[in-house]
Amino acid sequence: MYKRDCYEVKSNKNIANLVYEMVLEGPTTYITAPGQFINIEIDGFYLRRPISICEYDENTIKIIYKVVGEGTEVLAKLESGAKLDVLTGLGNGFKTIKCGEKPLLIGGGVGTPPMYQLCKNLINEGKEVTVVLGFNSKNDVFYEEEFKKLGAKVYITTADGSYGTKGFVTDVIKDLNDYTYFYACGPEPMLKAVYDNTNTTGELSFEERMGCGFGACMGCSCKTKYGNKRICVDGPVLKKEEIIW
């Protein structure tokens, strides 16, 4: 089920270059899996902004977003106490049931946030988690310590080599051999490279411009081997074996 509620901004802070971490207080009962997203109404803009959930508990939702346009610019200026109209329960999310003992989590830029709740869940399930995060430059890096604190083994790559391994996430992944499954979220070229450079099956989370975010408008459709799917309800997470590039 889906739900619309009013949420209060508890904190909203800059954690990397143009990247913000916001904590919202409000109901979370309709959130069922890591990898789901919320759809936020922003004052002065007609469409909501779909943003993936980084972490949630009984009464808070944490999101991490990048300022990429006018809507997120307004979001970044909000202070504690601001109220937001938010839809929750959106998207299918990641499944942890078939991932084996050593799942590999891959995040590219602001594709990193949904990996956090997933990592937490997998570690709680007793899995040995490896996380590979790719960024453009040192100033863009975030959440390295947070993932380490959960108990994951963390690799960082930067495209310009200013931090961690120089290059892309695939430059690290190609040397990893003993993972049992993978989860990835990031820009589409990264997802394609991950698809081509992983030797197990896995799940990939996609991004698309959305109208409604709950399956009504058919704005975010894609073709898969199992037929037409809507990124907002049949995704954003697709299985590796169903993807058509």
Binding site: E208, R209, G211, C217, G219, C220
Partner: peptide, 11 residues
């Protein structure tokens, strides 16, 4: 896709 573009007071 993209099939959607936001506008002032519409899409």
């Amino acid at each position: 896709t993209p099939r959607i573009a936001e506008c002032t007071a519409g899409l």
